[in-house]
Amino acid sequence: MFHRRRELGAVIAIAVTYSVFTYLNRAFLTWATFGGILTIAAEIGTITIGEGVLMVSGEFDLSVGSNFTFSAIVLGMLLKAAVPAALSVITVLGMAGLIGLLNGLITVRTRIPSFITTLGTLFFWNGMALWVTGGWPISFIAPLPVLNVLGNSTPSPASSLHVSAAWWAVAAVIFWIMLEKTRYGNWVYGTGGKTEAARAIGVPVDRVKLINFTICGLLAGLAGALQLGRMMSISPVRSGLELEAIASAVVGGVSLFGGIGTVLGMILGTIALASIEVGLVAAGAPSFWYTAFVGCVIIVIVVINTQLDRLIFTWRS
């Protein structure tokens, strides 16, 4: 089943990153560093799962970064207004899901590319975030219990691993089951693989897309809540996380053209990029290196994946 292992690129990236940075700095190969990587990966990775699932069904959401920020801000404002914690979280997740659904409705009804729809909503929700905050960050001085549950608490006082990674793991398990083990998952692959064939055989492709847009929005909102919990602060300035999420998914073997991708790949892709980020910081490189480096990694991995695909194709007997 070699031809199905498109996560290979991410595994290679993780292995190379670990080798290089451990060579540069022995401290890189420790559980503490790995905990830090998982903590960074948890928030992007939660967005990546939603984005990846949506990409498998053949659509994009460029507004996840804005949704992420706006959701975290609304959650912060609700908590500051002393709205009960559970109600605040549920409200924000519902709102984030609706933001995703709105992207889906515009895309499916008007038949314009989701790239355009969500480019528009990227700006719209970013503007809303700046408007409701006046441009100022929202911060909490004392940790609320709900913030601890979402992201702030750690297994031990000095640990770099935060509880947000556990929420990411929960999301991963749920959506791994959904994609691999349910009828709905099969419809997602069919919808993205060849929309017209899936439609002709009776798959409700439009409904699949709407549901996936909603999932994508909801997970972007959840990621915002996790980061608010971990940092106890959120800035309304553009995060740029949408591109990091798409990059993580692509590095993990998710196809830009739909129909191909696994949750395992999305996780490995996120970890690959997060370990590069942590590694560069640990090696003392300025943070802008990360941005430049990620660009190279994306290109290299996609080239590797494409070449592997061609090789397998010519090997087939």
């Binding site: 089951i177 691999e180 083990k181 349910t182 009828r183 998952g185 099969n186 419809w187 692959y189 069919g190 993205g192 693989g193 060849k194 064939a197 899936a198 055989i201 009776g202 798959v203 196809s255 129909g259 191909i260």
Partner: peptide
């Protein structure tokens, strides 16, 4: 659908499922 396996194509839109606890699993 070219990107899917034979088995997944064969049953696309009419997949057999069985219940495992609360979820219906392929």
């Amino acid at each position: 659908v070219e990107s899917m396996s034979i088995a997944r194509n064969f049953f696309l839109g009419a997949e057999p499922a069985r219940r495992v606890g609360p979820v219906s699993v392929l």
